[in-house]
């Protein structure tokens, strides 16, 4: 548990929240706020994926499918039925969770890592193709535009507006999502639930022999993980207000998120956040060299697996900040 969450996870989250709180009031350049908003959304996505990948230890490679499902479900319902995005985002998360549980069933039967990786990858490809082929509903690769932004909220005389172009409001929303999701996950995972996941990851047979109902817990983990990822997808959809199947469920999304998790630290609760920050920032700095982005991500994945398999989050104890932990071998997960 210590290895996963660090010493004082709530304090770390509080510090993060305090760092985020003043950003909307700093009169920063809109573009910088936009980049930070994307970082927060992707951090939630990466954290959600890390639940199955890092904590439960099932090497799933298809979570961009849940991002796409959450995004498209919320966008389609709000567009065609005029339902407020404040409601449809939860619907997106719910549908993603159901999809996660459904794809969890075939995975329950298999223990080999390659099977899990390939089944989830094939599932993501199916989802991408379905959204691309249902042109009458989603307009396929032309892009589904005209997604309504979140409805404005009035506080006193000022109305907070959302969506692309309303940088401060969108950032505030993403920040609330970020802190809220991480807080709820901390409350959930610091208890019996997280211990069970780690027990399944570290010794599945032993956990089962101690009465852990593997099937139920794995499906639960899949549902939670997919719901978090789907929720981030819904917020992404109503923020950018346009979606294409390739942009949300294509290979670049898979590589980007995988790079964030590996660079940040697989199986460390806060790892994916650091990875998301580092990679979102560098990829925006390299925006003028668009072609180099995937080259960089590929190289980063290789370098981190070789040099720092526990990611940025795994580096800290080695630097001597926590001497008590330094004696513990830094183990890759």
């Amino acid at each position: 548990m210590l290895e996963v969450f660090g010493r004082r996870p709530y304090l770390v989250l509080l510090v993060m929240a305090l760092l985020l709180a003043p950003v909307p009031f700093l009169q920063l350049n809109d573009y910088i706020v936009h980049v930070l908003t994307l970082f927060l959304i992707f951090a939630v996505f990466a954290t959600g994926w890390n639940i199955t990948l890092g904590l439960l230890g099932l090497k799933t490679l298809g979570h961009h499918a849940f991002f796409a499902i959450g995004a498209y479900a919320s966008a389609l319902v709000s567009h065609y039925f005029g339902v407020s995005p404040w409601i449809t985002m939860w619907l997106g998360a719910l549908i993603a969770a159901v999809a996660g549980i459904i794809i969890g069933f075939p995975i329950l039967r298999i223990r080999s890592m390659p099977h899990v990786a390939i089944v989830t990858l094939a599932f993501a490809e199916i989802v991408r193709l379905v959204f691309a082929n249902l042109k009458d509903i989603t307009r396929g690769e032309l892009g589904f535009w005209g997604i309504p932004p979140f409805n404005p909220i009035g506080i006193g005389d000022t109305a907070i507006r959302f969506g692309l172009g309303n940088a401060a409001g969108s950032f505030a929303l993403a920040a609330v999502l970020f802190v809220g999701v991480h807080l709820i996950l901390l409350l959930l995972l610091r208890g019996r639930c997280g211990l069970t996941f780690l027990a399944i990851r570290d010794a599945e047979a032993a956990a089962e022999s101690l009465g852990v109902r593997l099937a139920a817990w794995k499906l639960f983990a899949f549902g939670i993980s997919a719901a978090v990822v789907g929720l981030s997808g819904a917020v992404y959809a109503h923020y950018l207000m346009i979606l294409t199947p390739t942009s949300v469920a294509g290979p670049e999304m898979l590589i980007s998120l995988l790079a964030m998790i590996i660079v940040g630290g697989v199986g460390r609760f806060f790892g994916p956040i650091y990875g998301a920050l580092l990679l979102t920032a560098t990829s925006e700095l390299l925006r003028d060299f668009g072609d180099y982005r995937m080259l960089l991500y590929g190289a980063l994945i290789i370098v981190f697996v070789f040099i720092a398999p526990a990611g940025i989050a795994g580096l800290k104890p080695r630097l001597g900040r926590k001497p008590a932990e330094a004696t513990k071998p830094v183990e890759a997960v």
Binding site: L61, I255, A259, D291, M294, A299, I301
Partner: peptide
């Protein structure tokens, strides 16, 4: 490594996208 299975998957995914973008350049 003890956990080589996932390490190798991650490295070959990284290599795959690296070679693809290198070819593109």
């Amino acid at each position: 490594r003890e956990d080589w299975a996932f390490n190798v998957v991650a490295v070959t995914i990284g290599l795959s996208i690296f070679l693809q973008s290198a070819a593109q350049l």
